[in-house]
Amino acid sequence: MTIKVDLGTPLLARNEEMAEEIRYLAAENRLFIVNIMSSPGAGKTTLLEKSLAYLKKDLRTAVIEGDIATTRDADRISAHGVEAVQLNTDGACHLDARMVYRALQKLDLARLDLLLIENIGNLVCPAEFNLGEDLRLVLLSTTEGNDKVVKYPVMFRDAQMLVINKLDLLPYTDFSREELAKDVAGINPALEIFYTSARGGQGVEDWVKRLVGLVRAKYGVS
């Protein structure tokens, strides 16, 4: 006999459950989690490297490096004396909550204030996967063009912070700060925008200060 079963189950139900577990762990350990996303080559790892110099002074920080392959990025972070866990997805285009949960087992969470997760370079898939984070940061470089905000609305709609990187290259691109501001207003008016040249370090301190402020606001001064 044929039967029909009504489900209503989200396809990402298991990811959401896992993300909930991460949120629970983080709250228990007073740990603030940032999910950092961008297209490949926008400068995520460089921004992290430059940010750690400032962050280290205020917050005990660790990094999860998501990459399809290699441990190069984790090596770059470790060189700054910060604990880094490399996650290789072996081809998968995003990190999911299960992978992050497993990586968390390798860290002493009670001794950390901040966890920065560098997602796979991709403006599409990572947007769908909740990692139990407190903050979603999207990095966009001037060389990619200001139109990316409108082209990838899911990514930019769900973020709270936008860092525009490679500001030093602005004169060589068609990137328009005015157009960007207009598009951001139409996609996500609450999105906070910072401008950096991560390679030279310009602007990095500003976003770090804001981040430290957010962590303090949530958990107080430790």
Partner: peptide, 17 residues
Amino acid sequence: DITSGRELYIENYEGEE
């Protein structure tokens, strides 16, 4: 507010008992 467009779920399925 987005009231629709973010859905991604299995509504139902049919099969042989």
